[in-house]
Design a binder for these strands. Structure first.
Length: 485
DNA sequence: CCATTATTGTC
DNA sequence: ACAATAATG
């Protein structure tokens, strides 16, 4: 095959795919034989693109640093540009004389319309613009029901996903990259001010996480070898916490879902079929979220199920703040919210509990919770975060025929039996015997005293009564169903 | 009788 | 998923 323009550069536009391995667009750029201009654009201007949350920015800073180093060892510099992506790409095209561009597809209406514009910009000049599937194993728009409709329920989506055949094997990293050598203007990471300063809340997060492709790869390997086998039985226990912690790495594409799918299924000798399937199903929940986002671009702002449009959400700043700060008086809720603040992450079981509590017990709008998570989670994902919040609120894609109201006391007793999770994040309760940890207000006065706890002083009294809150939520649901005058 | 366990209806 | 109710021992 002749490569007519092998001396003119190709732009490799990195977005949510900060990896060398299994990166189809990068492989395309490498095999084109053209000098590669690698770029990342920080775009907070283009319409309908959600500005990143603070914790994600912390992650992205370090992930870009790591990715730039990876590229550097292959002789390639990562160019940083900011502003509207169409302008940044146009400028880069002029600066470098590039006659081709490639990227891995992203999802969401704002992102896709920017990408379509840029593709058009290249096509109009007879230049090449190619996009690849790398973020998801099956294109969300191609997973359809028998009557050619998008799925609204996970289980049939999962079945269809399986029928569509196993995801392709991951691609190897390109053997070599031919870098573009000329000087190109670039921002610095410091220009973007992604790291918090006054106050710097990132220290406890940095202790937990190492952003970047090599850390992601190591974590995946270690997880598959050690803990995958216990996933189906242990995944609901936030105390021992045997989850993979791969979510932020996946969020920024430091490791690909194809790689993880195959690593999981290759683990036949250590993990049984059940454990492997349950874990793979979680990976496909991510795909389902993108499927929903694709079909319902306003997933983060509008009820998926319009029947909830009349739901009488409360507005209560004090209650919202108590929830955000982990001061609700329900230890399992407070432990979760404090884990989130401290580490930028929360165990999934606890996400469901705190989400249900915000929406059902406090009657606060799920969008308040979604926004808080978006700002504080290092794995805040444009599809998974709204999809999960809508699921827990009952407004989303959920097959349950009833209005799910988690009981935070039962949930704590069931999933944090030994109280290790609560004690870790709510240390003011750590001297209370385990049996009282789920509901300290029911502990005998003598036990509270022995543990040095004064409810309302050293730890809050519950801000709502469970039974009353439950009844109030059910009444609100009824009220939202009354036909409007 | 009480505490634990199984069943069932709901949203 | 929960909670009211029934069954068990």
């Amino acid at each position: 095959m002749t490569k007519e323009n092998s001396n003119t550069p190709i732009i490799m536009w990195f977005r949510q795919d900060l990896r060398i391995h299994d990166n189809p667009a990068l492989n395309h750029a490498a095999s084109s034989g053209k000098p590669i201009v690698a770029v990342f654009i920080h775009d907070e201007i283009s319409p309908n693109i959600r500005p990143m949350g603070a914790a994600q920015k912390w992650w992205l800073h370090h992930s870009l640093e790591s990715h730039a180093n990876e590229l550097e060892t292959r002789g390639c510099k990562l160019i940083l540009k900011s502003g509207a992506a169409t302008d940044a790409i146009a400028q880069l095209k002029t600066e470098t004389g590039a006659d081709a561009i490639c990227w891995n597809r992203r999802y969401g209406d704002g992102e896709q319309s920017v990408d379509a514009d840029i593709k058009q910009m290249f096509k109009d000049e007879g230049l090449e613009a190619k996009s690849f599937a790398g973020h998801l194993m099956h294109e969300p728009s191609l997973v359809r029901t028998g009557s050619d409709m998008p799925y609204r329920v996970y289980t049939p989506f999962w079945k269809k996903f399986c029928e569509m055949g196993p995801p392709r094997a991951p691609y190897p990293a390109p053997e070599q990259l031919k870098p573009h050598q000329d000087q190109v203007s670039s921002d610095t990471l410091e220009d973007w001010k992604f790291l918090p300063t006054k106050p710097d809340w990132s220290k406890t997060i940095a202790e937990q996480w190492t952003p970047g492709e090599s850390a992601a790869t190591e974590r995946a390997k270690a997880y598959m070898a050690a803990d995958l086998r216990a996933y189906d039985t242990a995944r609901d226990l936030p105390g021992p916490d045997r989850t993979s912690k791969l979510s932020p790495h996946l969020r920024f594409g430091e490791i690909s879902p194809y790689t993880l799918w195959h690593q999981c299924h290759d683990q036949r000798h250590t993990a049984d079929a059940k454990a492997r399937e349950v874990w793979a199903k979680e990976l496909v929940w991510r795909e389902f979220s993108y499927h929903l986002l694709q079909e319902w671009p306003h997933l983060r702002s509008e009820n998926f199920n319009p029947k909830f449009d009349n739901f009488p959400w409360d507005r209560n700043e004090a209650a919202l703040e108590a929830w955000q700060r982990g001061q609700t008086g329900y230890p399992i809720v407070d432990a979760g919210m404090r884990q989130l603040w401290k580490t930028g992450w929360m165990h999934n079981r606890v996400r469901m509990i705190v989400g249900s509590f915000l929406v059902k017990h406090l009657l606060l709008d799920w969008r308040e919770g979604e926004s808080w998570f978006w700002d504080t989670l290092v794995d805040g994902d444009p599809a998974a975060n709204p999809a999960q919040w809508q699921w827990v609120a009952g407004t989303g894609a959920d097959a349950a025929p009833y209005f799910r109201i988690f009981n935070p006391i039962l949930q704590a007793e069931k999933f944090d039996k030994d109280g290790s999770y609560i004690k870790r994040y709510v240390p003011e309760l750590s001297d209370l015997p385990t049996q009282y940890l789920a509901a300290p207000w029911d502990a005998p006065a003598t036990e509270l005293k022995k543990a040095g706890i004064v409810l309302g002083e050293t730890y809050p009294k519950p801000i709502v009564d469970h039974k009353e809150a439950r009844e109030r939520a059910l009444a609100a649901l009824q009220a939202s169903k009354e036909p409007k005058e």
